[in-house]
Simulated assay, not measured.
Amino acid sequence: MPRRTRVAIVGGGPAGLLLALLLYRAGIDCVVLERRSRDHVLSRIRAGVLEQGTVDLLRLAGVGARMDREGLVHEGFDIAWRGEMLHVDLRGLAGGKTVTVYGQTEVTRDLYDALDAAGVPIVHGAEDVQPQDLTTETPFVTFRTEDGERRLECDFVAGCDGFHGVCRQAIPADQIRIFERVYPFGWLGLLTRMPPVQDELIYAHHSRGFALCSLRSPLLSRYYVQCPVGDRVEDWSDERFYDELQARLPERAAAQLQRGPSIEKSIAPLRSFVAEPMRHGRLFLAGDAAHIVPPTGAKGLNLAVSDIHFLSQALIAHFKEHEDGLLDAYSATALARVWKAERFSWWFTSMMHRFEDDGGFGQRIQEAEFDYLAGSRAAQTALAENYVGLPHL
C-alpha cells in the first residue's frame, strides 16, 4: 500500500468502490480503507432496485455487463389497497424510463472484480480510522491493521463509511447540522429461494401494517412486513412471518405466495436523516455517511450513487482541469437531490404504513391520498418520475 495517494476513500461499500473505480478510469490514484473483511461486505443483504441513472453510471464505469445479463428490468409496480391493486406504469408515465432489480451485493461484487483487475488498493481490516488535518492542504488518515499503525497522506478524504462511520464524526459539532425523523416501526425482511409472488413489486397497505413483495431473481424472493421497532428476529418464526405477510396481501397475490425456508432474516429500523453540509475542508461525505432514507422508495443505494456521480466529476475536474467550481458546489448540488429523495421517501412511507398514534384522522388522510393517486394521472406521473430517479443535474 502506498504511503500517499490523491484520494483516501474511507468505506468499502458500493459508494466507496464506485468512486475508486471512476477515479481509476480517469487516471487518479486512490486507496480504499474498509474496516470489515471482504466476505463480510459481500454478505450484507441490502437494496435491490436500481434507478435508471444508477444503471447508466454503472455501465459508464464498465461494470454493467453482468447487470445487463442478469438484472430484471421492471416497467412498473403495484400498490395494494383495500384488497385491490393499482398498477403504476413506470415506462409509460416516466418517459420510457424503468428500474432494474439487481441486488446491492451483486453490484459490490462487480465493483470488487473490476478494482482487483485494475490493481486499485483496497485495505480490509482497517481499524481505528481517523481522518486528520482536514482543513489544511495536507490532510491524512491514520489507521491500524494487523501489521501495525499506518498513515496515509492524501489530497482529499471521501467519507463513504456509512451512518455509523467515523468521517461524519470528524466534523466539529458546531459546523454540521443534523435533520432527523425516526419512525415508530421497522421492517422485518426475509430472503428465500422461492419464486416471487409476481414478476413486479407489490407495495401493500393494510390495517395490520405495511408489506412488500420484492425479488432478487426469478428464484429468489425478498419479503418485508412492518413490525414494532422493539421486536427481535427471534420473535418471528418463518411460519409467523408468512402468515402475517399473507394476511396483508390481496387475495389474488396471497394465493401465489410460495413459502420456503428463510436464507436471511433481519429487522431494520426506519429513519429519515440528513447531515449538512456534506463537506468539511478536504473531507467530502457521500451515501449513508450523510443521509438515510426509509427503504420504502428504494432510494438508499441510488442516492449514494448520485453523490458519487457528483463527487467523481468534481474530483476529476480538480485533478485534470485544475477547476474547483464543482468541488465548491458539491455539497449544495448533492443536497438538492438528497432532499427531493428524502421528501419522496417520507411521502411514500407516510402513505403506505400504519401509524398507531395517528388515529382516525391519519387513516382518512392516507385514504384520501391513495384515492387521489388512483384517480390522477398527474399524481401517478409524479410518483413514477421520483421512483425511476430524478436526473443527475
Rank of each mutant, 00 (worst) to 15 (best):
L270Y: 11
A314H: 04
D147M: 07
P250F: 04
P121K: 00
D155W: 03
G360P: 02
R271Q: 14
V293W: 05
H309M: 03
E239Q: 14
R222P: 00
G297V: 10
I178Y: 05
A26D: 13
L93T: 14
D116S: 10
R36W: 08
A253H: 08
L270C: 13
G148C: 06
H291V: 02
G48R: 14
P172T: 07
A286W: 01
D155F: 06
I308L: 12
Y183Q: 05
G76L: 07
R354K: 13
P391V: 08
E251W: 02
R36Q: 15
P250L: 08
E276L: 01
W339Y: 13
H318Y: 13
A304Y: 01
G96E: 04
F361H: 02
D39W: 03
A8H: 10
A61S: 12
L191K: 11
E367V: 04
V338G: 01
R6I: 03
M67R: 11
K97E: 12
A332P: 01
R177F: 11
D243G: 03
L33G: 12
F185S: 01
D235A: 08
F273N: 00
L58W: 10
E239H: 06
Q175H: 14
T333G: 00
P277C: 03
L393H: 14
L188M: 11
K265Y: 01
T296Q: 10
R252C: 10
R69K: 15
C30L: 02
R46A: 15
A268N: 07
V293M: 14
M1E: 06
C154K: 08
V32E: 09
L50Q: 06
V129Y: 07
A329Y: 02
A334E: 04
L93C: 07
L215F: 11
R44V: 15
F284A: 00
L115F: 06
Y372A: 08
C213D: 10
A368V: 06
G92K: 04
G13P: 09
L373Y: 05
P269A: 08
P294W: 12
C213N: 12
D68I: 07
A384N: 12
S306K: 11
L326H: 07
I45M: 12
L42N: 07
C160W: 02
E367F: 00
V55H: 06
D133F: 11
Y387G: 02
H322T: 12
Q246H: 12
L19Q: 04
S214L: 12
Y224E: 09
A126W: 03
L23V: 08
D231N: 11
V7M: 06
T381D: 05
S43P: 05
Q246I: 15
Q363K: 03
L50P: 05
E51T: 05
T349W: 13
A247M: 09
F179S: 13
Y224S: 06
H87N: 12
A211N: 07
E127C: 07
D113C: 04
R144T: 15
E244I: 07
R35K: 15
L335R: 09
G13T: 01
L60E: 15
M1C: 07
G92N: 03
I28K: 04
L90C: 09
A341P: 04
G125Y: 01
G230C: 03
A158Q: 09
A126P: 10
D78N: 13
I316K: 02
S43C: 08
